[in-house]
Amino acid sequence: MIELRNVSKLFGQTRAVDAISLSVQTGELCVLIGTSGCGKSTTLRMINRLIAHSAGSIRIDGRDIEQIDPQQLRRGIGYAIQNTGLFPHWTVARNIAVVPRLLGWPAARIRRRVEELLHLLDLAPAEFAAKYPSQLSGGQAQRVGVARALAGDPDILLMDEPFGALDPITRESLQNELLRIQAQLRKTIVFVTHDMDEALKLANRIVVMDKGRIVQQDSPQALLAKPANAFVENLLGGQERGLKQAGLLRVATLMQVLTTAAAPLAGPRIKATDNLRQALSLMLWHRCSSLPVVDEQGRQVGVLRLDALLDRPR
């Protein structure tokens, strides 16, 4: 668990972070969001002591981080950043091995760990282990960046706009990857972004920051339902809010379940695991007010009606 209590950071006269209090539960994926310059990165870097905080206290699992040797602290916290910061003179394998080497693991264990992580991030070891960062695409480099952050098996992961420089398709696949990995590993993650769709998709909790302060912190659903002020509302995309909210809900939650199994069907249909935003889009496209819902094998398991979307309680 990470606890920030009344934490401030002053750079000369500028208050980059202004008395914020925040606690991130173990296993939680907490997203910090806000416009550029609002203090997100500063907050993140104070957690691993890359920046010393000016006031307040930061505790990790109850221990004040000022009591922990900074190098020791950082080796226990994964760190991934936007421009990857991969070491250009080292191979992918050597890059991933950085923290295990600093931790003094034996060579055989490091080799196994590197291989395991390459598999986890969907990078074939035979193809990628010996490559240099300059030989990777943006998406591959960022996968290596995430693998490197996970290498020492830290409980905590700090990620500063890790997917910010990627094209939308690559970004989406890495977001899915992160969700898959998080479901598997249950790390405590603090993730910085300025992209609300990314925040809504990934977060257990969204922390909205503005001018160094926390404006609101809530679950994605709660944030969409009750934005604290015009700034948050604006960040949520104003008129697009309805769609963003629909994007958070699965078709399965609102469909009418079929009691008898039906034959495979042709024509428009939607998967139970898709979200309501996709369902709505299909209805608009096909000019229909109901869609058959199918499972992974293509068997119909229910029906989704437009009425159900409209009658949904707030």
């Binding site: 900074p70 950082r74 226990g76 760190y79 910061g85």
Partner: peptide, 27 residues
């Protein structure tokens, strides 16, 4: 040297001398 590389080196928990000898001087 790309500041992101130095930030990563420090962020991974390298000591100043390790950053110098393993990252800065080789690069």
């Amino acid at each position: 040297i790309d500041p992101a590389v130095l930030e990563a080196a420090r962020g991974m928990g390298m000591a100043p001398l390790q950053v110098l000898c393993q990252v800065e001087l080789p690069l």
